[in-house]
Every structure is written in C-alpha cells, then in structure tokens.
Nucleic acid binder design. Structure first.
Length: 585
RNA sequence: GUGCCCGUAGCUCAAUUGGAUAGAGCACCAGCCUUCUAAGCUGGGGGUUACAGGUUCGAUCCCUGUCGGGCAUGCCA
C-alpha cells in the first residue's frame, strides 16, 4: 500500500481520458485506455493512443478525434501542456512542480515506495526450485531459485498475497537410488566390496552421508550384502551394473535385506539432502513458506482419490496392464500413464493430485516455475485440471531456460550424474551471492542465459551489479559528509531542481512503481534489473556533472532530497532482487 | 518426422506486448581525477530486426512459407 495520497499519474490521466472519451462518444468497454511513457523528451512525459483506437469505430481522422478528446479532458493540477502529435498521439507534459513534489512522497514512503495495490490482495502461489532432494543444487536450479524468489518479492510489492512453495519429490525412484547409493558406500566403508552401479549417484556427498551414518551407528546397517548380488544376472562382473533393471533389482534386494532399516536410511538421506538444500537456498537469500511433501499425497490417500475422480469422469482406461489418462481429449499429443503395469503410480499421477490440492487450498492464481525441458509436460497437467473441472487459466507455467556458464570465453561443463557438475554453492563461493542473484535475473527468463563467470567476478565498470551498488554507496557517502537531519530533506522544497538531468531523474523515480507493477504483471523480474541499471546510469552522470554540497541551503537540500530518493529506490529495487545495497564499497 | 520456444549492432541482450527516429552493456577509438568514492563520467563509429510474402493508419511484435538454432517427444523423476 502506498503510504501517501500521491497519485499514480498513469491511472490519473487514464481516468480523465475515460471521461473525455465518454463525453464525445460511448466508449466500448473493450477499449483499454493506456498511458505510455514516451521515449523522447520532445514527446512529453506520457502519451495516449486512444484517438487512434477510436479512429476506426468513429470513422474519423485520428488527429481530429485527438483534438476533441483534448477539449473534453477535465482539468488536471499536474498537467502543464497537452498536444496532438504524429499520426494522432496525444502527448502530455507534466508540470515541473508535479515531479518535484514527488520527492516528498518517495522519502515518506521509504521502503514502501514502489508498492501498490495492483494485486488487490489476491492469493497467489509461486512454486519454484522443487528439485529432487538427491544431491546438491546446481547452477540450473540457481536460476529458477533467483527468478522465483525475485518474482515472489515483486508480486508481494505489487499487492499480492504471495505464498512461496517448494514441492519435495520424496516419494520416487530417484530417492530409492540415492538410498541404495548411500548404503553401498556405507558398505564400502565397512570394507565390504560390492560393485557400485554406474547409474547410481556418484557424487562425493553420497560418501559423506555414508560416513555420517557410520559415525553415528558404526556397523549396525551392514547386514548381509552377499544376498545383494544373488538376484543379479551372472555377467555383471564383466559388464558392470548399468541398466535400469539391474538397479531396480538392487533396490529391491536392499529393501529385502535391510527390512525396517531401509526406511531409516531413506529418511536419513532425505533429511540430510533437504537440510542441505534449505541451507543452500537460505544463504542465497531464498526462503519458502511451504515445503510440500509428495509422499504426503500418498500417505493421506489423495493420489488414489484423484485417480478415482478421473475414473468416475471416464477419463481413464486400461491398456497393456497400465492405467492411462486421456490427455489427448485436451490437446496433448498422446495419452499418459498414471499407474504402471506394476501397480505403482507415476510421477504424473502424484502431480495431478498435487495440483488438485493446490486448487483446494484456494489460491486465486498459481505460478509454476519450471525448467524449459519440462515444456512438454504443460499440456498433460493442464489437461488433467480440465478433466477435474478446474480452471487451467489459474495456473501459469513460467518456463526458465537454462543458464550456461562461461569461463575464459568457453562453456564450463556441467552434468548431473557424473559428480562433476557445478553446484550453486560453488557458484556463490566464486562470484558471491549478489552477483549471482543479479546475473540470473538480468535476462528475460524464457531466454537462454549466458552466465559469464569472469564478468560476474570482475570488480570493475564491466560488472552491472557493482555499477548499481556503487551508485547506492556514493549517495550514502555524500549524505554522511553532509551529516544533517533527514527530516530536513523530507520537507525540503524541490523547486530548485530544474535542470533537464534533474527533471529526467525525477521522472525516473516516478516510473519505479509502474515498473514494479509491470514486472508483476508480466512475471518479468528482469525489468527491475534493467530499471536499476538505467537509474544508476542517470545518477552517475548527474553525480559527475553536479555538486550536491553547495553553500546555498535550499539548492543543497533539494539536491540531497533527490539523491536520497534515488538511494531509496535503488535500495528497494535491489531488495526485490535479493541483492544487498552496501553503504560503502 | 511431429510439437513448443527462439533468430535484433562484431559479442551478450532490451524494446512499456501493435506505436513515433529500434535502445543498453561489453569490445574498439579519443578525452576527464588538487573539489561529495575514477567500481565513475563525456564524445565517436556501428542495423534492410534471418529471408520472402500478407494483415492495417502503423509490424521487431500478429498470420503463412523458407532457412538456421534450442528443447521435448519413456509404464523416468
């Protein structure tokens, strides 16, 4: 909520144009009246294209309509000049005083400046990361984490009631593979040689977990490993273990041999990985309101219930021993299995149950942030929603393209199974949290991201993170040397701010709430990153051209109020991105 | 093969979703520190928006086709 009554100029003028439009004709409700910021100063501050939209239905020249609209426009205390331009644009020029008085609004609103009630308190859920807890997060997860966290903050600032959620895949085969992998490493520690499957988890963290189990429980979980190999085919010693069937046999054997103890190890590795993941994300400035367990959907019968619902609605059929969902009824390219021949539910089945549960929790809107490799998955999930008579429009899938790391101008390798991948933790250690968070959201999320490690590390003008932070630190430094009472700035007259640079900066500050709103509307955190860089650029330029600590007090206070406002906006914007705003650099 | 996404300056990307003369940062060239932080600033060259059509007052954006790239096409998660 904005703390003062100062208007949003776009909304203010749009309201006036609606009145004017209704005065000259009956406005079709489908017409959206939009005020756009102009690109050139000669076009004023805002422009409206309503006249061009009306040209066709009214069968009149757009310039003529523009004149009619201007004549019918109610007076505004903020408007200096209004004129028709080009093909029929209506350009609006703000009074300098309107811009100057805005500073007080910024300084009074403080950290709330940029907030709006655009979202009207609607309940919105953002589900992101949701990585399998089977190993450390890697740099691909990092981008989803950064985008999800930033988007959540932006939505909250724009007036949504945001809930951040991590879906924990704690029920599937991958968890079994990790459990098996850990136990095998544990057996190795106890000097029992068993072949380690090539397609099991190879990473060192598995060995670490095995060591932890050994330290806590010594040989308690050794049991009878010889049994482990009994069921396997004879030739494994020649070819190694590398097929899915062999791995599944090993898992089955492990369950048989360990009995009750299997659950202990399963739970141990899950807790360990989840804790590590949570820790990692927290250090990255990413936190969740809810960690939702996939297993819980099975435990409370929701998966079975969901399948029954689909069955009742006749969207399921049996073929080749498996149960299929008719997703082709909803535009998917083929039907999908929900229950396998062996009786096990697929990941898709629990995912349908999960989304049903989300709807039951009453969110007005849900956003899933998925890796771009999941795009083929959208049709079947939305199809399932339709089958359950839920509104698929309420679910927005935001696809995030992968980040590719570059070092010395070359692609840095990363893979998930070999144990050789680049982890998020390593990335943070190498470039720092701030640079990582900023770089991840610098590009539109559905665009590939080339992550230049050398650039992110460089402490120079090439690095956009430092560029923005430096602007903040510079303002802090000036205000420290001024050493005055901030209240004097809040109440200072800004009349002395009349240079083109100063007026442009004022307009830039006015743009901030609109930018946050746009970023929320379009689910586009990158708009904040671009905005901050532009604001920092204008500030640096201003800093070099103008002295702030001048002897004339009214002028000094006006300029200090301006840069203090800039600092506020830099701070607020950086916080939305999870990047710190240092006082000194 | 089919489906989705993408193609903008030498490189990496924007462009308020159909608006006015398509903008930034790198890189390259030339300048600015005795004064609030040079992690900064000022100036310069750089484009048939992959290509060909179409829709309209107006197209980087929408439609069709061609070429090029990415991803997906499991009873995996």
């Amino acid at each position: 909520m904005t703390s003062s009554a100062y208007p949003n100029f776009k909304i203010h003028f749009a309201g006036l144009f609606r009145q004017a439009g209704n005065h000259i004709t009956t406005l079709d409700t489908s017409i959206r009246i939009e005020l756009a910021r102009t690109k050139q100063a000669s076009h004023g501050d805002y422009s409206c294209n309503l006249a061009m939209q009306l040209a066709k239905p009214l069968h009149k020249n757009p310039r003529e309509i523009a004149s009619l609209l201007i004549n019918a426009l109610p007076p505004s205390p903020y408007l200096e000049k209004i004129e028709v331009a080009g093909a029929g644009f209506i350009n609006l020029f703000l009074k300098n005083s309107a811009k100057q008085q805005y500073l007080q609004h910024v300084l009074q609103s403080k950290t709330a400046f940029g907030h709006s009630d655009f979202g009207q308190g609607k309940k919105i859920q953002v589900e992101f990361v949701s990585a399998n807890p089977t190993g450390p997060l890697h740099v691909g997860h990092g981008r989803g984490a950064a985008i999800g966290a930033s988007l959540s903050s932006i939505l909250a600032a724009a007036g949504f009631n945001v809930s951040r959620e991590f879906y924990v895949n704690d029920a599937g085969r991958q968890m079994d593979i990790l459990t098996l992998s850990t136990w095998l490493r544990y057996l190795e520690l106890n000097n029992i040689r068993v072949p380690f499957p090539e397609n099991a988890y190879q990473g060192n963290y598995v060995k670490t977990m095995a060591q932890l189990i050994q330290q806590a429980h010594d040989q308690r979980y050794v049991h009878q490993p010889a049994l482990l190999l009994e069921d396997l085919s004879e030739n494994i010693h020649e070819t190694g273990i590398n097929t899915d069937e062999q791995l599944d046999q090993l898992i089955a054997s492990a369950k048989k041999i360990l009995g009750q103890d299997y659950a202990y190890i399963h739970n141990f590795v899950l807790t360990e990985q989840l804790g590590d993941c949570r820790n990692d994300l927290m250090e990255f400035g990413v936190e969740f309101d809810t960690w939702f367990s996939e297993q819980s959907l099975f435990d409370n019968g929701l998966v079975a219930h969901t399948i029954q619902l689909l069955e009742k609605k006749h969207y399921l059929y049996l073929q080749d021993g498996a149960v299929w969902f008719r997703s082709t009824d909803f535009g998917d390219e083929k039907d999908r299995v929900v229950q396998r021949e062996n009786g096990q539910f697929t990941y898709f089945a629990s995912d349908i149950a999960y989304h049903l549960n989300k709807f039951e929790r009453g969110f007005d809107q849900m956003i899933n942030i998925w890796g771009a490799d999941h795009h083929g998955y959208i049709a079947r999930v939305k199809g399932a929603l339709q089958a359950l008579e839920l509104d698929p429009e309420k679910l927005e899938i935001a696809l995030v393209q992968f980040a590719v790391l570059y070092r010395d101008g070359k692609k840095a390798p990363m893979s998930t199974r070999s144990g050789e991948f680049v982890t998020l933790r390593e990335l943070r250690q190498e470039v720092g949290k701030d640079a990582a968070r900023f770089f991840y959201v610098m590009r539109k999320s559905d665009q590939h991201l080339d992550f230049d490690l050398d650039l992110a590390k460089s402490q120079s003008n090439e690095n956009p993170v430092y560029y923005v932070q430096y602007a903040h630190a510079r303002v802090c430094s000036v205000l420290v040397q001024w050493d005055g009472d901030m209240n004097n700035l809040v109440n200072a007259s800004a009349e002395a701010l009349s240079s083109s640079a100063e007026l442009a900066l004022l307009q830039k500050l006015i743009d901030f709430p609109d930018t946050v709103e746009m970023a929320a509307k379009e689910f586009s955190p990158h708009l904040i990153a671009f905005y901050l860089r532009e604001l920092a650029s204008e500030f640096h330029s201003y800093y070099n051209s103008t002295r702030f600590l001048v002897p004339e007090i009214p002028l000094q206070h006006a300029r200090l109020a301006l840069i203090a406002s800039i600092r506020e906006v830099l701070n607020n914007g950086l916080r939305l991105l999870g990047v710190s705003a240092p006082d000194k650099m």
